[in-house]
């Protein structure tokens, strides 16, 4: 496999696996158990939407270590993994809380202390590296990036003169994550996934990775999946699937629920105060203090929280009011 992220040996791309079991349903903890220490992991979703948060909490509860994370635009997902000590290298393009809260506190601490190696990338570089893996190629060229500081951070990038046009191009090696962690709105027992709204990089992640571990809000029949909009990620890419309602919380999973800004405020305040406060006020309550997802849902306010976050459906004014309340909270 291509393993450029660690700067180690590069070998030829191996044929990619496919997954043909007719029933891939499993429990959340069994799903999390398939993520091994030291894996290269692509976390799906982006910023405040559809991040596989329940699966990440289950991974942290298992004490997984040494992950390399690759991705485009991320926030609380990678910050939580950083605060929980699961990561040793970050190849993300962005990890933060936009202008609303600012920099990601746990991520910053982990990278500034050296506990996590800095291996930053950029969205299109990552896209090309994933597309190389999807196509079974060792690399793809890009024109951009040359002239910036990224090549100094990534000695694995190579320059070449195009044999057709004579222009200089940058070659970026395939990235083949060992596992993609994806939360979708719907799936079926076979593992077909339907993502509604922006897929971010999830479809690329699913096709480039050796395994796809998915959580979904609802498992439905294949016929129902087609009625709801069709298949975004065909079943044969998917290793296992688990039905986890509110599985992206506190990020959004429309149409089921909006982004929980109130919970994010609580998270951010704990993270900002420092590693000890984050452990005591957040991890010990919402991750290690909630042994399973049902306990987590109870911790965040159960049905009342779910109803509050689904009130966006009542129209534009209700949607805005939800954010107005959040802004004043």
């Amino acid at each position: 496999m291509i393993f450029s992220l660690m700067g180690g040996e590069m070998s030829k791309t191996e044929p990619r696996p496919i997954y043909v079991d007719s029933d891939k349903r499993t429990g959340l903890d069994d799903l999390a158990a398939q993520v091994k220490d030291g894996s290269v992991v692509a976390v799906g979703g982006g910023l405040s939407s559809r991040e596989p948060m329940a699966l990440l909490r289950a991974i942290l509860r298992r004490g997984v270590k040494g992950l390399t994370v690759v991705g485009s635009a991320h926030g609380i997902d990678i910050d939580l993994l950083s605060g929980g000590g699961a990561i040793s290298r970050s190849s993300e393009s962005y990890v933060g809380f936009e202008q609303d809260f600012g920099m990601a506190p746990n991520y910053r601490r982990a990278l500034e202390s050296g506990a996590v190696s800095v291996d930053d990338s950029c969205c299109y570089t990552l896209v090309q590296q994933l597309r190389a893996a999807i196509q079974g190629l060792p690399f793809l060229p890009i024109r951009s990036v040359r002239g910036t500081s990224f090549p100094s951070l990534h000695p694995e990038y190579k320059r070449m003169i195009c044999p057709f046009t004579g222009e200089e191009l940058l070659l970026v090696p395939a990235i083949e994550p060992e596992v993609a962690l994806i939360h979708a709105q719907y799936g079926d027992a076979q593992g077909n996934l339907l993502i509604q709204g922006p897929p971010v990089a999830d479809i690329l992640f699913a096709k480039a990775s050796r395994e796809v571990l998915a959580t979904v809000e609802e498992i439905v029949s294949t016929a129902r999946l087609k009625e709801l909009g069709g298949v975004s990620i065909p079943y044969f890419y998917v290793t296992a699937v688990s039905e986890v309602p509110m599985g992206a919380h506190p990020t959004a999973c429309y149409p089921f629920y909006a982004y929980d800004r109130r919970h994010t405020v609580l998270y951010y305040e704990a993270a900002r105060k420092g590693a000890d406060a984050f452990l005591a006020e957040y991890l010990s309550v919402f991750v290690h203090g909630a042994p399973d997802h049902a306990d987590y849902l109870a911790q965040i306010g159960g049905e009342k929280a779910r109803a509050r976050l689904s009130s966006w459906r009542d129209g534009a004014e209700a949607w805005k009011r939800l954010y107005m309340d959040e802004a004043m909270a």
């Binding site: 024109r143 951009s144 040359r146």
Partner: peptide, 25 residues
């Protein structure tokens, strides 16, 4: 948008998303 201090990082910034690519393209 990457880091203050490099290669000895003093402050890790969030990163530039796709800005690096788009600044060229």
């Amino acid at each position: 948008v990457t880091a203050l201090g490099y290669p000895n990082i003093k402050l890790k910034l969030p990163g530039g998303g796709g800005g690096c690519n788009l600044s060229c393209d």
